[in-house]
Design a protein around this nucleic acid. Structure first.
Length: 278
DNA sequence: CTCATGACCTGACGGC
DNA sequence: TGCCGTCAGGTCATGA
């Protein structure tokens, strides 16, 4: 479910609730998430620590704690965080609860259990966890993700360009929705091989990746079915989607009816307009 | 290296 | 109403 704009939305919403609070208790209701949780170890590592920073890297959330360690969190497909008043009834899919020093509970719910939660070493409050650093490419909204960077990467790859955009080691945070949307905006078919793109196309694509992510962040992300921000609100960007999920619908750019096509790439749905994308 | 496939899970939806 | 197939925003392992 969550790509960079959704995770950024969650990060911004959580920050004021978590920053400066201390974690008083941890309850693991479901240990079998993406990686098995060691409840006792988790409790030992975080209980009594205070929260010094809440930030995002790619699709990961990093909650820095006092004492040099932090929590590395991933929402998987259906993960969600909420901050609840004491006594709030538990959701059916509640997996982990952190009780905060203001007595509220910070909760992780996740129906499909693809989410991830682990303790990581943080040499400084702003450090990139080492285990992530070598696996994640640049932030797409940073200057490091430039036209030149995308051009060099694309030219060196025979992969379909949409698959390359979704590769977290190439650029961190782009998922299935925004990869399709960025290709549409740039006028490039998702199945085009990276090394067959022109320099102009690469430059356009880099700009459109940034553009679509920035707009989506301003909208609080995209809700297709179940994404919720910590305050329960849905993202508003779904109304701005131009191709994702619009199979057989008219193209919003060229106006041709029944124009948007769906294909499967690397097991994921891609959507494009054969008229507007070359 | 690339790529397709399946596994991990649960739920929603459409067709019959 | 129920059953069944298909699909879902992510990541990872495997084998061709």
């Amino acid at each position: 479910m969550p790509e960079l704009p959704e995770v950024e939305t969650v990060c911004r919403a959580l920050r004021p609730h978590l920053l400066g609070r201390r974690i008083e208790a941890v309850a693991v209701l479901t240990a079998r998430l993406r990686h098995e949780l060691d409840a006792a170890d988790l409790r030992a590592q975080v209980t009594g620590r205070s929260i010094e920073a809440v930030r995002r890297r790619g699709k990961y959330l990093i909650v820095a704690l006092s004492g040099g360690r932090g929590l590395l969190l991933h929402l998987g497909m259906t993960g969600a965080f909420t901050v609840c008043e004491p006594g709030t009834p538990a959701d059916k899919h509640l997996r982990v609860t952190f009780t905060l020093s203001d007595q509220r509970s910070w909760r992780f719910t996740d129906p499909r259990k693809f989410g991830m939660l682990r303790v990581c070493e943080l040499s400084s409050p702003h450090a990139d966890p080492a285990e992530l650093a070598h696996k994640l490419g640049p932030e797409p909204l940073s200057d490091a993700f430039s036209a030149a960077y995308l051009t060099a990467g694309a030219r060196a790859s025979t992969k379909p360009i949409k698959n390359l955009l979704m590769e977290q080691a190439f650029v961190a945070g782009v998922g299935n929705i925004y990869a399709s949307e960025a290709c549409f905006r740039a006028g490039i078919r998702p199945q085009r091989r990276g090394n067959r793109l022109t320099r102009a196309e690469c430059a356009r694509l880099a700009a459109e990746v940034k553009g679509v992510l920035e707009e989506a962040i301003l909208c609080g992300g995209t809700t297709i079915s179940d994404f919720r921000a910590p305050d329960g609100s849905t993202g508003r960007f779904h109304v701005a989607l131009q191709v994702y999920g619009r199979k057989d619908q008219p193209c919003l750019r060229c106006g041709k009816p029944h124009q948007i096509q769906r294909l499967v790439q690397a097991g994921r749905s891609s959507f494009f307009c054969p008229n507007c994308q070359r």
